[in-house]
Computed example of a mutant assay.
Amino acid sequence: MNPYVLLIGSILFEVFGSSMMKASNGFKKLVPTVGLVIGMGSAFYLLSKALEHIPLGTAYAIWSGAGTALTAIVGILVWKEKFNLKILLGLLIIIAGVVVLKLSH
């Protein structure tokens, strides 16, 4: 399988796991807690498989940057967290950094 498909899957599972962490209310709710464990476990498994073919620095930069940006977007859309120009600028900088790192290899 294409390692970048594995990496994208890993990012999506990480974002899901992070969202479930918020929903678990400090691990007080069982279903979101189970979702957190499944999401993060799957994320790290897929990341480890992607790392068999993608350099660590590149994979981790894409994984953490895209995961951070997508988690912030989920926070805004699902959890009604605040959104302003500074947050937009920060997200754009993260995305630009991921693109530059990807282009460097």
Score class of each variant (00 low, 15 high):
Met1Thr: 04
Met1Asn: 09
Pro3Val: 06
Pro3Thr: 05
Tyr4Asn: 09
Tyr4Leu: 14
Val5His: 09
Val5Asn: 08
Leu6Lys: 00
Leu6Met: 03
Leu6Asn: 02
Leu7Asn: 00
Ile8Arg: 03
Ile8Leu: 13
Ser10Val: 08
Ser10Met: 09
Ile11Cys: 07
Leu12Lys: 08
Phe13Arg: 03
Phe13Glu: 01
Phe16Arg: 01
Phe16Pro: 03
Phe16Gln: 02
Gly17Asp: 05
Gly17Tyr: 04
Gly17Val: 03
Gly17Met: 03
Gly17Lys: 04
Ser18Tyr: 09
Ser18Asn: 14
Ser19Tyr: 14
Ser19Asn: 05
Ser19Asp: 10
Met21Tyr: 11
Met21Cys: 04
Lys22Phe: 12
Ala23Phe: 12
Ala23Lys: 05
Ala23Tyr: 10
Ala23Ser: 11
Ser24Glu: 14
Ser24Tyr: 08
Asn25Ala: 13
Asn25His: 10
Asn25Lys: 06
Gly26Phe: 07
Phe27Ile: 14
Phe27Asp: 07
Lys28His: 12
Lys28Asn: 13
Leu30Phe: 15
Leu30Asn: 10
Leu30Ile: 15
Val31Ile: 15
Pro32Ser: 10
Pro32Asn: 12
Thr33Phe: 13
Thr33Asp: 13
Gly35Arg: 04
Leu36Tyr: 09
Leu36Phe: 12
Val37Asn: 13
Ile38Gln: 06
Gly41Cys: 08
Gly41Met: 08
Gly41Lys: 05
Gly41Val: 00
Ser42Asp: 05
Ser42Cys: 03
Phe44Pro: 03
Tyr45His: 07
Tyr45Glu: 14
Leu46Asn: 02
Leu47Gly: 08
Leu47Ala: 05
Leu47Pro: 01
Ser48Asp: 02
Lys49Val: 10
Ala50Tyr: 05
Leu51His: 06
Glu52Cys: 01
Glu52Leu: 13
His53Cys: 13
Pro55Cys: 01
Gly57Ser: 07
Thr58Gly: 01
Ala59Asp: 01
Ala59Leu: 00
Tyr60Met: 12
Ala61Thr: 11
Ile62Phe: 02
Ile62Thr: 07
Trp63Asn: 09
Ala66Thr: 08
Ala66Cys: 11
Ala66Met: 14
Ala66Phe: 08
Ala66Leu: 10
Gly67Thr: 09
Gly67His: 10
Gly67Tyr: 11
Thr68Ile: 12
Leu70Tyr: 13
Thr71Lys: 00
Ala72Thr: 14
Val74Cys: 06
Gly75Val: 12
Gly75Ile: 07
Gly75Ala: 06
Ile76Cys: 07
Leu77Thr: 07
Leu77Ser: 03
Leu77Val: 14
Val78Asn: 11
Val78Ile: 15
Val78Leu: 15
Trp79Ser: 13
Lys80Cys: 12
Lys80Pro: 13
Glu81Asn: 15
Glu81Pro: 11
Lys82Gly: 14
Phe83Val: 11
Leu85Glu: 03
Leu85Met: 12
Lys86Met: 09
Ile87Lys: 04
Ile87Leu: 03
Leu88Gly: 00
Leu88Cys: 03
Leu88Met: 02
Leu88Ser: 02
Leu88Lys: 03
Leu89Arg: 09
Gly90His: 04
Leu91Val: 06
Leu91Tyr: 01
Leu91His: 06
Leu91Gly: 08
Ile93Val: 14
Ile95Leu: 06
Ile95His: 01
Ile95Ser: 01
Ala96Gly: 11
Ala96Leu: 15
Ala96Tyr: 14
Gly97Cys: 02
Val98His: 00
Val98Gly: 02
Val98Thr: 06
Leu101Gly: 07
Lys102Cys: 02
Leu103Met: 09
Leu103Thr: 08
Ser104Pro: 10
Ser104Glu: 15
